[in-house]
Amino acid sequence: MSFNWQGVFPALTTKFTEDDVLDLSMFQKNLDAQLEAGVDGIILGGSLGEASTLTNQEKEQLVKYAVEYLDGRVPVVLNIAEGTTKEAIRRAEEAAAWGAKALMALPPMRYKADDRETTEFFKAIGKATDLPIMIYNNPVDYKIEVTPAMFDELLKLDTIQAVKESTRDISNVTRLRNHFGDRLKILCGVDTLAMEELVMGADGWVAGLVCAFPRETVAIYRLVKAGRLEEARQIYRWFMPLLELDLHPKLVQYIKLAETHTGIGTEHVRAPRLTLIGEERSRIEKIITDGLAARPALPDYLAL
């Protein structure tokens, strides 16, 4: 049940071939880039991973492949995004059998549960598994907020250990730390607030643009934690136009286009998503190519 909720955890995109099947070769290439950059774990089956379009068999294939290929170098975390408590429990049980070392859990899908229902949903998962759990708190996109009062109840379970903090309120890091101390690990879930939340004491970063720019993402994290804030700030300022791609409903298409330009991904998405065309494509591509043209030299952050 012990898990180190610290560092950079990429919420990886799911790689597809042109024929709409899992592209495990490109998945491996991206995993290699993440490992070389120094990430601390990977998250599969999140929103950026097009979870709602994946079959359960595909999730199993991705987890088992990653677990075998990574061979303990970094842990694999599986996201749970289900509409019923029964199915959420089943995913948690399967994740353990497939070799995942932890879970990220969204509130109930397709139904706006109230506070009591949301709390009971998470508690049911936490009681059904020995895997450590990170609660994904994103009221902006999912319309359900996990409040400190709800965490008071949830943290009675040893399996519930962390929060992906995506409320867009930086002061929430301080509020949670004041209330729970180190009992609740805090990972920033919004790319454009990452440095700010890390400076305020967040333990980690569940990142999106890391899928295309792993070294820059890990460099910012490690420089902040080493107190080298000016160096981190310069990289973060360069990164911001790219990080803003994470805030759009088409974040999957935008980040996959960035992965294509950095050579560690493809544009293939699963319908109803479609690849970008026209003015939108030109606009996003300019952000990416401008960023690549000004890509900064990085210090030896891995030695920190």
Rank of each mutant, 00 (worst) to 15 (best):
D114S: 09
E153F: 07
D152H: 12
E145L: 13
L157Q: 14
F122I: 03
L157E: 14
L131R: 12
F122H: 13
D152P: 12
Q161C: 04
W98Y: 15
K143W: 13
T159A: 02
K101P: 09
M104A: 00
G126E: 11
P108N: 03
P148Q: 01
E94N: 11
N137I: 02
Y136C: 04
A92T: 03
K112Q: 10
N137S: 04
P139F: 00
V140F: 15
M150L: 05
E117Y: 06
K112I: 12
D152W: 02
F151I: 07
N138H: 07
P139G: 01
N137C: 03
T159I: 02
V163G: 08
Y142P: 11
W98K: 13
A97G: 12
I160M: 02
L106Q: 12
P107V: 07
G126S: 04
E93C: 00
E93D: 11
K127N: 08
M104Y: 03
M150E: 09
V140S: 14
K101F: 05
T118I: 13
G126P: 08
A162G: 01
G99L: 09
T119G: 00
A97N: 14
E145T: 15
E120W: 06
V146M: 09
Y111A: 12
L154S: 07
V146E: 07
P132R: 03
A124K: 02
L131A: 06
A96V: 08
D130Q: 13
P148C: 05
A149M: 01
N137K: 04
D141F: 15
Q161R: 05
I135L: 04
L131M: 02
L154Q: 01
M134T: 05
T129K: 09
K156N: 11
K112P: 02
P107Y: 01
A128N: 11
D152R: 14
A162Y: 03
A162K: 10
I125N: 02
D158E: 13
L106M: 15
I144T: 08
N138M: 05
T129L: 03
F121M: 01
E120N: 13
P132C: 01
K127Q: 07
K127F: 11
K123Y: 08
E145C: 13
L157V: 01
E120F: 08
K164S: 12
D114V: 07
A100Q: 06
I160P: 05
K156F: 03
T159K: 04
D130I: 10
V140Q: 15
N137F: 02
I135T: 04
Y142H: 15
L106D: 08
P108C: 14
M104K: 10
I144E: 06
T159P: 04
P107W: 08
Q161H: 00
E153I: 07
T119D: 05
M134L: 04
E145D: 15
A162D: 07
M109T: 12
L131E: 12
D130R: 10
A105I: 06
L103M: 03
A92K: 13
L106F: 14
A97W: 03
L157W: 07
D141I: 14
P107R: 13
M104I: 01
L106C: 14
K143F: 15
E117H: 12
N138G: 09
E93Q: 12
K127M: 03
A102P: 10
L131I: 09
A100Y: 08
A128D: 03
D115Q: 14
K156H: 04
W98C: 13
Y136L: 03
K123I: 06
M150R: 02
K112V: 10
K101H: 09
R116E: 12
Y111K: 10
I125M: 11
D114H: 06
D114W: 06
K156V: 04
R110I: 15
